[in-house]
Simulated assay, not measured.
Amino acid sequence: MQVRTYKTHVSAIDYDSPMGQKEALLAGAKRCLVEKGYGQTTARDIAEASGAHLGSIGYHYGSKDRLMNLAVLELSSDWGDTIARLVRRANGESLLDRLAASLSAIRDTLPNTKDLQSASIQALAQAQFDDELRTTFANGAADARREIAALLIGSNDDQHQPDAGEAGVGSLVYAFTIGLVAQFLIDPESLPEAEQITEALRLLAGDSD
């Protein structure tokens, strides 16, 4: 399985142009997120990682916090795209089979995206103290839950409004995904294997042999 790499390269950016500096700062912020974490990154760290001037952070983004928020949102969007691709590829005759296949595929990506997952969890905690960031995360999560539910259920109607059960499917996958990420970051050895995920879901559904 091919998993997107999150190490950000900035060597091809033209630092002398204003747009080049802006792009470099965003790339540098992403690099700091995966290498240092949200709470440990300073404005000077971003400037050093990007090769841009320290003062250009305020000029282009208003503040270091706004730049960091944008960086984590872009990385989270990339991760969300990965989840959507995995769910779309999940095979199975029943919804339960597709759910198990999706969670197993998501589980398999975690070792290759550890730094990103750590940064995302830190950003979720930071969102409790930043209304703008929390609102953006909430809107993005709502869209993700709807998309996941539609993919698992097999709806191709972009305008389809999920009923309570369908909405619950999206919320369940979202909750399971966050739980798998947290479990992996805290105790990777305890992460269930794909077969365990499948059997656990069948047991919960009363469909265990």
Rank of each mutant, 00 (worst) to 15 (best):
T82S: 12
I106M: 07
L116D: 01
L185K: 12
A105I: 00
G55I: 08
T198L: 12
V169W: 01
D163N: 15
H9G: 02
T135G: 09
L180W: 11
D108Y: 02
L95W: 06
L86N: 00
A27G: 12
A47M: 11
D209H: 14
T42D: 06
T177I: 02
A200F: 15
R145F: 05
S190C: 03
M1Q: 10
I153Q: 03
N139H: 14
P188F: 01
L73P: 06
L99F: 09
Y59A: 11
S76P: 01
L124F: 15
Q126H: 15
T135F: 10
A49C: 14
G80K: 01
S120Y: 14
D97L: 09
L99I: 13
E74R: 15
A100N: 04
L96Q: 01
R31P: 00
I57N: 00
A71M: 03
R98G: 02
F137S: 01
L185S: 08
R4E: 13
S118G: 15
D14V: 08
T135W: 08
L95M: 06
G58N: 13
K64H: 06
D65K: 11
A49R: 08
P192L: 06
G37I: 02
L95I: 09
E147A: 14
N139T: 11
L96P: 01
A12S: 13
D115K: 02
V72H: 00
Y61D: 04
R66I: 03
D131L: 10
S190G: 02
Q117T: 10
E74G: 04
D97C: 05
D14K: 13
L116W: 02
Q183L: 15
L33N: 03
F184R: 08
G55V: 08
E35H: 11
L201C: 12
G51D: 05
A27I: 00
Y15M: 14
T82P: 07
I153T: 10
W79H: 07
E189C: 07
I121T: 04
E23N: 12
A167L: 06
A167S: 10
R66S: 08
L75H: 01
G39P: 11
G62D: 05
T5S: 14
E132M: 11
K36M: 11
L33W: 05
Y38N: 04
A141W: 09
S208G: 15
A52E: 00
L152C: 09
D78F: 01
R134I: 03
D157R: 12
